[in-house]
Design a protein around this nucleic acid. Structure first.
Length: 420
DNA sequence: TCTGGGGTCCTAGGACCC
DNA sequence: TCTGGGGTCCTAGGACCC
């Protein structure tokens, strides 16, 4: 069986763990730049606040004292996530961390009858040790475990644990699950299915496989099987990422190439750091720019470009150099840019890089790798203490608006200023 | 005025090969 | 005038997830 553990209203729960007086009150957490709502407490959900609502549309509730708002604090959330996951790994024979707030425990080999008890104990322990409330759905496939998790969250009577383990329970659960709640059916697919008379998950599995295949391709058929208890979603292999992206919206529009150069350099530098941390190197470096799509009064431009490297690289000078080359290629003056990003792809293991036969830049590459190694040793604080001239200095703010940020509860100032 | 960030996988179509 | 059949690889875009 799979047990899907999902943290309830995770970002909100993290804020509450260190500020218990937020318990029972309507709380939302905002995205970067305090842009839009990305997490809601049950109370704020009940008020009708939708996921993704821009902050300016709920600000009046904050002003009236009816809603509490927090800027997102990803360092804190990452830290609490790691604590929760480590408690899970003590119980699960195999653990797949699926996202910051969610993990599949593969409980194959564990007696099915003992699972509910194990999970209830686990919920109590996680709550006591980390302050985070979680719900657990138990079922033979991942997609059904998702369904079970929905029920565990929705109905208090389950006390956080819902098991779907017999054909009868599967049928019952599917009949009560709207099609747009099914894992793998997105907001585009659901209306099409509903129009064809498929309102619930049970309607969905009642259609022939060919019918699903014609409309939703192989992924649809996979979901169709999973909902009937046949495992189709593969075990996650512990592979390295295939692409890495660092992107941000800007607090205000940018028109100037020099300013964009600073931002893109920072994004590219961050990508290079992530590559080195994973022990990988990228064969392609791409960038993209976005103007503000909500500003219908302004001209729109969404360019992207990528540069293929002769030899896969992870050094900051090489990755940044390639990103800036791509930036200069697509940049056009006269547009108000709202967002930019760098994507590195064609990632390979750093230890198995294919060299070129006549490598005239080989020495430069060795030098760049050494420079990066030194930068990593110095930049342990996460700030650009040692940086390329095109990157911004660590003493500048990062340009992200965070008006409602909670404290550094799990990271001390010492962590921030420590330089070895 | 103000609207997030980071991933994976599949598919269709074009370019190219013999 | 007549103009095949079978394959691979790459890419961009779409759809989905959190």
């Amino acid at each position: 069986m799979y047990a899907l553990v999902d943290c309830n209203n995770f970002f909100v729960s993290c804020e509450r763990a260190f500020q218990p007086d937020l318990e029972g009150r309507p709380v939302v957490v905002l995205s970067n730049n305090d842009g839009c709502v990305v997490a809601r407490s049950n109370e704020s959900k009940a008020m009708g606040i939708k996921m993704g609502t821009p902050y300016f549309k709920v600000k009046y509730l904050v002003d009236q004292g009816k809603l509490v708002v927090r800027s997102s604090n990803y360092t804190l959330y990452g830290d609490l996530s790691a604590r929760v996951m480590s408690l899970l790994s003590e119980v699960a024979p195999k653990l797949e961390v699926y996202s910051i707030d969610e993990a599949f425990m593969n409980m194959d080999g564990v007696n099915d009858a003992s699972l509910p008890g194990i999970c209830r104990d686990l919920i109590r322990k996680i709550r006591r040790w980390t302050g985070i409330p979680v719900s657990i759905g138990i079922a033979p496939t991942k997609t059904l475990a998702k369904v079970a998790n929905h029920f565990a969250k929705k109905y208090k009577g389950y006390k956080g644990v819902c098991v779907i383990d017999t054909d009868e329970k599967i049928r019952k659960a599917l009949s009560l699950t709207p099609i747009d709640d099914v894992w793998g059916v997105g907001w585009r697919g659901a209306p099409k299915l509903e129009a064809a008379g498929v309102k619930t998950a049970l309607d969905f599995v009642s259609r022939p496989a060919e019918w699903i295949r014609d409309r939703m391709g192989v992924i649809g058929v996979r979901t169709w099987s999973e909902l009937q208890g046949i495992r189709m979603v593969e075990e996650e292999k512990n592979e390295k990422r295939k692409s890495i992206c660092t992107s941000r919206s800007f607090a205000s529009n940018i028109t100037d190439l020099d300013e964009l150069t600073l931002r893109v350099s920072d994004f590219a530098g961050k990508c290079a750091e992530k590559l080195r941390k994973e022990g990988t190197a990228a064969g392609t470096v791409g960038i993209f720019l976005y103007t503000n799509r909500f500003r219908e009064d302004l001209d729109q431009y969404y360019p992207s470009a990528s540069v293929r490297l002769e030899v896969p690289a992870s050094s900051s000078p090489e990755i940044i150099g390639a990103a800036l080359k791509a930036l200069r290629y697509v940049y056009k003056p006269g547009f108000e840019y709202k967002k930019a990003g760098v994507i590195v792809a064609d990632i390979v293991d750093a230890g198995s890089i294919q060299q070129v036969l006549f490598d005239f830049d080989g020495q430069a590459r060795v030098r760049d790798d050494k420079i990066s190694e030194v930068m990593d040793k110095v930049n342990t604080s996460g700030r650009n203490v040692l940086r390329l001239a095109t990157q911004r200095g660590g003493h500048y703010a990062d340009g992200i608006r965070r008006d409602f940020c909670s404290g550094l509860y799990t990271t001390s100032w010492n962590d921030l200023i420590q330089v070895r």
